[in-house]
Design a protein around this nucleic acid. Structure first.
Lengths: 266, 266
DNA sequence: CTTGACCCTGCCCTTACGTCAGGGTCAAAG
DNA sequence: CTTTGACCCTGACGTAAGGGCAGGGTCAAG
């Protein structure tokens, strides 16, 4: 049997010498023999294994997964290849969809940039950022949250999102954040709920709420359900962000106290 | 102005505390102030900058690129945002296309696996590997190499690739590799070009050549042009692999010597 | 005997953070 | 006054898949 030194073998398979070193150290592909001086000597059979490695690497599997798969055939077999294939297909499909969304966001921003450049000449870059941010928010807000809204509300929400310009959307988001910041500040300073400041905060809150729901009770109801069911939200990153964009319980209680104080005082 | 400690700020923006530490160390987003005990204190303005950072991160820019963009506005301006947008769009588009190719390869392999399972019951996994390897080869062989082939040859090649089963394709690749290995071995052992062994190697070479070109002189011509123009190949990774799948100059010269010896000896 | 082309191992570098570890700060509660 | 718990800091190490370099050994040819 003819053997190959590492460089020849690397060229034969189209990989680098360094990668072969790496695979050897990971025990993913060790050469059939070593020369008496320690040189790696690969044989033809090693080429077959390497090609299997490269095939799986092409599919985006990690070297650890590849090792598990290839070593499974000799002994304690793990997962059949077909299952891995299906899982990887799903994962890659999600990644592609994510890329698609980002691409759509870029295209959207580019169109807006062009419009603005044509009409005004100047290029306010913040418009681009707003466009992208809107896209992020939309993506984060969808998915599993929909199950809290009635079908009619989902429909209405979609229409609303599509109809709003990014400026409006981002402005609303900013206003909520500013409101939360001011509420936090009020809580920190222990502003009493029956003060004038508290009343203005309540007024802002209610105005913003109307701006979001636009008076649609179905949307308001869905949002309330979504908010109240936080304990059942998935333990997800998106959930975490959504949680951050929700008023905290302290804010709610301050809000209620302020309203009641307002009612009492006439 | 109200300020936020790091955790509040992180929740407000939907990122982790550690990420904010990271951005601070990279001087990508440093808080407006520090408390006298060293606590980071973020202000409302920082939130705007952070949101720009997150928008660009969503587009897949590296933090280094983001820093360059955001710091460019204050001082030595670099590249306008629109240019970055266009470049990133192209890059992401390529990545998505790559994912699409991988997904198609997986689907292809899955279909084959199902066919085989239905007809034979058993599941020879190497068939799946072969399917994937074929896909890799096809992808690597396309692109810029086409310009060496005449349009008719390109057409013929496409048809041929589509018509061949993966087994055939992979088998041919393996046979070439085995041939190269044996040629290398013959060269190492200084097998004379007029020996019987050399003659069988030449015969294998010619048979394989016929199997690839299937007698189409346009394909053979294009392949020769492709081979002879290696000095002008792009300095690409794909080119490197293709180079590895080409017979080396020594092989060619051995091949010629053997043929001439064969002609002389009758 | 030297030169040049190989080969080896081991260590540090990359991205965008996560994960401790060790130690300081601060407000409320005992 | 001290403790407790919730914060905060910095710094070091780890991640995936190798790239790059350094220091040193091997081997064939000139």
């Amino acid at each position: 049997m003819s053997t190959f030194r590492i460089q020849e073998f690397a060229k034969l398979a189209g990989v680098t010498v360094r990668a072969l070193h790496h695979y050897d150290r990971l025990k993913l592909l060790s050469p059939a023999h070593r020369s008496e001086r320690g040189y790696r000597l690969y044989c033809h059979e090693d080429l077959g294994r390497l090609e299997r490695v490269l095939a799986l690497r092409y599919l985006g599997l990690s070297l650890r997964e590849i090792a598990a798969l290839l070593n499974a055939s000799v002994g304690h077999s793990a997962e059949p290849l077909t299952v891995t294939l299906a899982r990887q297909r799903a994962a890659l499909g999600e990644r592609r969809d994510g890329l698609d969304r980002v691409l759509r966001a870029i295209e959207h921003a580019q169109r807006r940039a062009q419009d603005v450049a044509e009409t005004e000449g100047a290029e306010p870059e913040w418009l681009l950022y707003q466009t992208i941010l809107k896209e992020i928010q939309m993506q984060e807000a969808t998915d599993w949250t929909e199950k809290y809204y009635s079908p009619k509300a989902v429909e209405a929400l979609r229409e609303r999102l599509a109809a709003m310009t990014p400026e409006q959307w981002v402005k609303i988001g900013d206003q909520w954040k500013a409101l939360f910041a001011d509420l936090q500040s009020a809580l920190d300073r222990e502003v009493p709920p029956d003060s004038a400041e508290a009343r203005t905060l309540v007024a802002r809150w209610m105005r913003l709420g109307d701006e979001f729901t636009l008076g649609d009770p179905e949307i308001a109801e869905g949002w309330r359900r979504l908010h109240d069911d936080q304990s059942h939200w998935p333990d997800d990153e998106r959930a975490e962000r959504l949680r951050a964009s929700m008023p905290k319980p302290e804010y709610w209680s301050f809000f209620h106290q302020a309203i009641q104080a307002c009612l009492r005082h006439g």
